[in-house]
Write a protein that binds this DNA or RNA. Structure first.
Lengths: 205, 205
DNA sequence: TAACCTATCCCCGAAAAACAGGATATTTAC
DNA sequence: GTAAATATCCTGTTTTTCGGGGATAGGTTA
């Protein structure tokens, strides 16, 4: 029985590319594509694929959220995350939300097919490069921030000084300073510059 | 005479997608593809296309630089920039470096073919969405940085202090301070935090 | 209840950055 | 060849950050 596949990606060229890579495989069946989360869910309502290839950067609802929703409603669907970047933060998040694999968009045909077949058997598959970047970047991960810390981080990024932040949040400067110090510790940053850069890279700002 | 096209993109799926979108058009000929700047230049050495489709995010040398180089050596080649994002900073840069068009990767088949045909006639073509985002985001634009400023900006982002940067670059702290001041002015930033955030958003870091 | 997390506040001193001026070579561009 | 841009350096003062501490109070949870 052929593996039924479905694709969600807002890039027409990527959809076409994947289709042309998979269409000549006899054990892989192409059910169609969606270009956003809503029409993907609508499609699943009628027909359920075995493997769902999903861009993690979707307009509106992110791939991360869509992945969680699909896995909750249709546990038989295995999800493969697709992305241009191999950012460990994205990979980790997709995994946490139930994805079975992660493939970079510069993957070869062989890699893509292996991913589809592996995941269809209920196993996990990661792009070679994705694994490398996970290993390389094994250290930090995404720090867990409290609500207040996120708030302070946002204001720091907007260029406000501790004094201004204190006024805005109706707290003492000392408190803001403590939050700031905790942020530096959590991000393992030397100063505000590296803190902001790290936060931007981890999509926390 | 068919329009000879060539593609540079490091994403295999995108190459395949474009190929499958263009291959059935009788007035468009597919010369091949390259996955990085070097092999693109090597190809051009032997065969010159009419239209060169080029991802702006290439590994190593950026699409921006490749575009300039190609236009200098082969003025008959018209370049179309390809990108996932419609960031006005990228679009502007590609134009400054001699590109004739800009198409988003979520473009439709019709749009892509129109772009190729328009550009082949020596005219300019912009994705509908690219034009929109240019209009919408007319405000700030992207600051022009000198080589030294970019260097200093990078080191600031990596968390080095002015003293450390001075040592690294074998210049005085006062000079580093001046570069820093100029960066703040160019980015219209209040302090380092907002500078780094702005630089990250504009992909300059 | 005790341990833990979160948010709040405080002190100190050294280091760094921000602000405000100005100055001088060397390229680069017109 | 002249003007503009770039890179370099200087002297101040004021503000902010950074790195140590430590303390209290409320909520959660094991």
């Amino acid at each position: 029985m052929a593996i039924k596949t479905f694709i969600v990606d807002d890039h027409y060229m990527v959809i076409e590319g994947i289709r042309s890579l998979l269409q000549n495989e006899k054990d892989i069946e192409w059910l169609g594509h969606a270009m956003n989360a809503a029409s993907c869910l609508a499609f699943l309502h009628n027909q359920v694929p075995d493997v769902l290839l999903m861009d993690i950067n979707l307009p509106g609802k992110s791939g991360i959220d869509l992945c969680r929703e699909v896995r909750e409603k249709y546990p038989s669907v295995f999800v493969i995350g697709l992305s241009t970047f191999n950012q460990q933060s994205f990979i980790e998040k997709m995994m946490e939300h139930g994805a079975s694999g992660y493939v970079l968009k510069n993957a070869t045909q062989a890699e893509l097919m292996e991913a589809v077949r592996t995941v269809a058997r209920g196993k996990s598959y990661f792009s070679h490069e994705a694994v490398l970047s996970l290993k390389k970047n094994a250290g930090p991960g995404i720090p867990v921030l409290t609500r207040r810390e996120k708030e302070v981080l946002g204001l720091i990024g907007d260029g406000y000084t501790n004094n201004e932040i204190a006024s805005k949040l109706f707290i003492s400067v000392a408190t803001v300073d403590t939050h700031r110090k905790n942020l530096l510790t959590k991000f393992d940053a030397r100063n505000i510059a590296s803190l902001i850069k790290a936060a931007m890279q981890k999509q926390l700002l």
